[in-house]
Design a protein around this nucleic acid. Structure first.
Lengths: 204, 204, 204, 204
DNA sequence: GGTTAAGCGAGACGGTACGTCCGGTCTTATT
DNA sequence: AATAAGACCGGACGTACCGTCTCGCTTAACC
């Protein structure tokens, strides 16, 4: 269901020296480190190579762009944390939404996504890689909503993908575009919107 | 209501020659042109200067970054289109949402916003500029929702800003991050969610 | 009289598989081809290997430098053409000088020699290889001059090596350094200088 | 009579900031230094830039190849030493030949010339630059031989250019191609050849 | 209305990074 | 054991821009 790798590995070579796994891990590690230290914009292939003790050409051999490298590095180095499943729709949905807040409004991943989105805007392959990267982040939420629909907490024909876009989009947009904090109140507003159809209210 | 200029004008010159308006317009025009031709990523100050027939230093004198230049150019060159006000909440909200779709999912502006969001993530001044740029885009929606709350279509204590984040976020995220189209169905889903508390449903 | 091979053969293999003659010929052939197509400067080991269908390491195993490879390739692939011996000193000397013109001012070999000379300037082994490569080219001239001294056309104590340096040097320098053509007039001037002690004259 | 500059300066810019002479001197100085330290082959534009404290692009702006840079650096940094003129043909010719020995068989210039000759072999512009670089080195010799022809020591119709090629070629070829030393004996052999028509003899 | 400071074009400049090529060395599997 | 294939580190290539800095010219603003 999830992709194995995001990188566009060149056609499997039938002969020749095998790919050195240590080298590749070093590159991915260096990428994650630099992402945390200087951010996506100031991360250069040259610095990754130097940090990893690797030739630039080795990086270009296996990844054809900075975005492809960063996506794979984040996949392996910053895995999605899956909250436990209780079975109670409200509890589980709240956990899923809080997980999205963690991802987009707190962690390293979120602040990198706008740059990736911008970078792949003229690159169909990159766009697909980005989609595949985001997919597992949505899986937990999807499962929770499926469960809720199954037990009747949500209507059976609810459009789950759009519901997910609703709360991830709100968190993403408020945090990364408008640069405003996303607090517990907003999480609760989103939970109530989805489970109760109650629009967000201001606190009196 | 909106800011006059986004640029950080240098210290007021007590004497000497004044800023040449023709030069500035040429720079902004060239920026809008290049934004359409090559996109934000490949737009360089050097190309803008060359296209505008202007020295690079003149650009740096009046704008301290590419993002500041682009924001001002978009403000002046790609003004927000304001749909007319009918007084019917459903009609007006639908128009406001469609306007957001136009902005983020169709036009030149939307595809630039992720890049701006990424660029200003480490720059408080830039973040404020971006917020001010986005403000007028929200104003129409805010007014519609105020009106709806006034006539009782929405609860009086509805959190209008969060409602706006909800539908702009969903459109923005689906279109620009997930690179999926935003169609009329989704617009209707958003209208019904806000006015009827009805979660999005799949089409049977 | 001439060396058998210029290459620094690795330590004599006491056991194991022997050097593959087909492979070696393919390498030398590819080298001669590329020398003609792109010249010495742009000839790379990588291209030779690819053209010959051979691994780079195989080349490095048998030749320790590009110059060694090229020298051996030219020895085998572009052999010196020896003019027939008539016994008449003037005819034979003229033929020897014309042969030098062919070598240095017309063929593939000459234009490679400056590059080799430059390359081996800090490499004693390479210098010796270059000397050995050039030796057979001098042999014909030496024999002609010996014969002339024997029959009294030249003084018995003539310094034959220096005489050879004189005419080869003049041809080499004018053609390859000054990039000027070497014509029949100059050949005759050299013949008369050596046999008659007549300095070169301008044509009236 | 001599060229003013070898570099292919871009068309004189009528406007804009003036070329910084200190920067250019620093580049030429660094080139001469590195030429002495590592030789032409291992001299890279990158090292010159780093040594001179200069951006690579600045070098490429004014010189379009390594050879053009090196030629101009040698012209300015390793000027030809002119022996004094006595009026006696034999003395002056000996001095001119010894000067050629200094240049080609001892100094930094000579060992660089084969590399230059090789590099410009497919480049007409470079070939012309090399010719112009060599010209002043020949001027002293030319004047001496003109003088000798004027006073009757040489035939009036002597082909002076070819005579110069003869002795420079012999020195150049023996020293740089055959890697043999050029001693006082050879100088005397060349003087006697030219002034007396006496072929070189071996020392008994 | 003459003086003068600033605006301005052009572009030089030191840097950083780009993406590519090649040099030499080293595995790996094949022959 | 020699080889074809090719991964790998490192160094250099020539180019594009960055943001800053002169130049010399032009022109508006103040005396």
């Amino acid at each position: 269901m999830s992709n194995e790798t995001v990188a566009a590995d060149p056609p499997a070579p039938s002969t020749g020296r095998a790919r050195n796994p240590r080298t590749h891990q070093a590159i991915l590690d260096a990428t994650v480190q630099l992402l945390g230290e200087v951010g996506y914009q100031d991360l250069s292939i040259e610095r990754v190579a130097s940090r990893a003790g690797v030739g630039k050409a080795t990086i270009y051999r296996w990844w054809n762009s900075k975005s492809a490298l960063v996506i794979e590095a984040m996949e392996r180095g910053l895995p999605v944390e899956l909250p436990e499943h209780t079975g109670d729709p409200r509890t589980d949905l709240r956990a899923a939404i809080q997980s999205a807040v963690q991802t987009y409004a707190v962690g390293q991943v979120g602040s990198t996504v706008p740059a990736l989105a911008a970078e792949v805007s003229r690159d169909a392959t990159g766009a697909e890689q980005l989609r595949q990267f985001l997919r597992p982040r949505r899986d937990a939420a999807r499962e929770v909503l499926h469960q809720a629909a199954a037990v009747g907490t949500l209507p059976p024909d609810v459009d789950i993908e759009t519901v997910i876009d609703l709360f991830i989009g709100a968190i993403f947009y408020r945090s990364l575009v408008r640069k405003l904090p996303v607090d517990a109140v907003m999480v609760e507003q989103l939970v109530e919107l989805i489970l109760d159809g109650r629009l967000p209210r201001t606190i009196p």
